[in-house]
Amino acid sequence: MRRDMKLMLAVWVAVTAASLAVSYFVLRTLSFPTPGAAEDGIIDDAFMALTYMATPVFGLVIAVLFVAMLRFRGSGGPEDGAPIRGGGTIPKVWFAVTTVLAVVLIVYPGLTGLIAIRQHAKPDLEITATGSMWQWTVDYPASGVKIAGAKELVLPVNQHIQVNVASKDILHSFWIPAFRQRMDAVPGQTSSIYITPDRIGDPSDAAYRLQCSQLCGVGHAYMAMPVRVVSQDEFKAWLVSQQKTAEAR
């Protein structure tokens, strides 16, 4: 009994340490898509915080399963296991510990992350992306540029951008993996997210694509386009070229 408990504790510590190491060295560096916006940190940090917190829980369950399968074997013979009913303090302690864990998770990274992602300054730029089956219309109201059936989404770097998301017909969803956040396009309402692209993006990177992520029928998978994050000068030049194209029409 003592020995089994010691073995279980050792496996628990070992599995927890190993999964912490894998989380820190492998998951953290390999798993996320290219980070492209200032807000990404809030989301990626929350993800890692939850992962680190999960490791001891994971370790405990694995340890008990492992030791039980290794040490507490029977073969269906007449012998019974120990008559432990678990009516004493163990369930109370377990209940208390899991409640504390849940409350911790709710506060951090839950509510703190929610507050952080909600805080946004006055936007430098406002754009509206309107989904329809199966394309996006992108509107830069301040510049009078409006592109229906856009082939790419062009955004300036280091500008705090308010993206208004709307729909002409059915549900769609605005999502760029590099910027993490998404918002559904709902007919009859406009919803907003705030993003601050903080590096020049490579539009051939799958993380830099505006992908519809709410099932919208036949064209859903292809309701996507590359996202090009460019310098502010380049962005201004691009807007001017778009205004000229519009005038030429």
Partner: peptide
């Protein structure tokens, strides 16, 4: 997130049951 509390009790029951059993 509160659902993790009752679910945790199911795990307690499962793990406590196999501990020192004759699997």
């Amino acid at each position: 997130e509160l659902i993790s509390i009752p679910t945790g009790l199911i795990f307690l029951s499962a793990l406590g049951t196999i501990w020192q059993g004759k699997l």
